[in-house]
């Protein structure tokens, strides 16, 4: 289990990295390495070139911007875990990030790495789906923004061109006092989720004004439960409401692997989205 031979590049700027990405054949970007390195060690990927993004300081950072948060692609998951701006502007992410692997992997793992890898059960893409995040990618023709709804192009396949690099993600904030809840089911503490669910609720006068419900780990990419969201609008929150509204999650197309059959994933989608909503409703301040 040793990495195959490759050439190593350590660009100092986004422009340099994009230039390398455009000019090198069969190149892979190395961010935190928590997914790419195991794949290299197992020789699941055999790149001719590895472009290490760890030399580009400009790609790291969390900043509060108009209407939300901007997080640089190379920002470590650990920095999100301990970030006060994130707790204020996107408490859902603060809660979800604790479920991302273990301390040792969060210390290295990055936001951009997780989004580019796009594992179906990963937490950061789930949060992005929940808040309608926007992904900024830079390529030879400059920077463009991709709404998260359009970001997954398939199983573990982001809608980026081969010569594009994820530079940041913008997470729109929900109103202060909104309710949030992240529920995850994994076999062991820190494992990849089998299924997780993210819920956000804004209420007015004791009724749900706006809700967002997302499940991940079920299908090839995070899924917003639009039918559930519509069923909640204008209603007073209750366990019963959430239960019936989440039943439709059982109909999501589901993956199957060694950890769980498809039907179990669909079942968990309904259970965990309900639990996330219950938690979110209880947190409305």
């Amino acid at each position: 289990m040793k990495p195959p031979p490759f050439s190593y590049h350590l660009p100092g700027s986004v422009e340099e990295a994009v230039g390398l990405l455009g000019s090198l054949e069969n190149a892979k970007l190395l961010a935190g390495g928590q997914s790419l390195m195991p794949m290299l060690n197992m020789r699941f990927v055999l790149p001719d070139h590895v472009i290490d993004l760890n030399g580009i300081g400009a790609l790291s950072g969390i900043s509060a911007v108009e209407g939300g948060l901007r997080i640089g692609g190379m920002t470590r998951q650990r920095d999100i875990e301990f970030s006060d701006p994130v707790k204020t502007a996107c408490p859902l992410l603060s809660e979800a990030i604790l479920q991302v692997g273990h301390r040792q992997t969060r210390n290295r793992g990055t936001v951009g790495g997780s989004l580019s890898h796009l594992d179906p059960s990963a937490e950061i893409p789930a949060v992005c789906a929940a808040v309608d995040a926007e992904i900024a990618v830079t390529g030879p023709n400059g920077t463009r923004t991709i709404p998260f709804a359009e970001f997954p192009a398939g199983y573990m396949m982001p809608a980026m061109e081969p010569d594009e690099l994820l530079v940041s993600v913008f997470l729109p904030s929900w109103k202060p006092g909104h309710g949030y809840g992240f529920e995850e089911f994994a076999r062991r503490h820190g494992d990849f989720a089998i299924v997780s669910a993210a819920a956000l609720i804004e209420a007015e006068g004791g009724r749900i004004k706006r809700a967002s419900v997302t499940v991940s780990g079920v299908g090839p990419a995070p899924v917003r439960l639009r039918e559930t969201e519509r069923a909640l609008a204008g209603q007073a929150g209750s366990e019963e409401l959430f239960r019936s509204a989440c039943e439709s999650a059982r109909g999501i197309e589901a993956l199957e692997d060694v950890h769980a059959p498809a039907s179990y994933r669909q079942h968990l989608a309904a259970v965990l989205s309900r639990r996330a909503l219950v938690k979110a409703w209880s947190r409305i301040g």
Binding site: M1, Q34, P38, M42, N107, R108
Partner: peptide, 26 residues
């Protein structure tokens, strides 16, 4: 050597990391 067992954990600038998931050049 795939980042699960944690036996290879070292501290890099005081912060824990799995040494099988970092290149030496890094």
């Amino acid at each position: 050597e795939h980042g699960v067992c944690g036996a290879c954990t070292v501290l890099v600038d005081g912060v824990s990391a799995r040494s099988c998931l970092m290149l030496a050049v890094q």
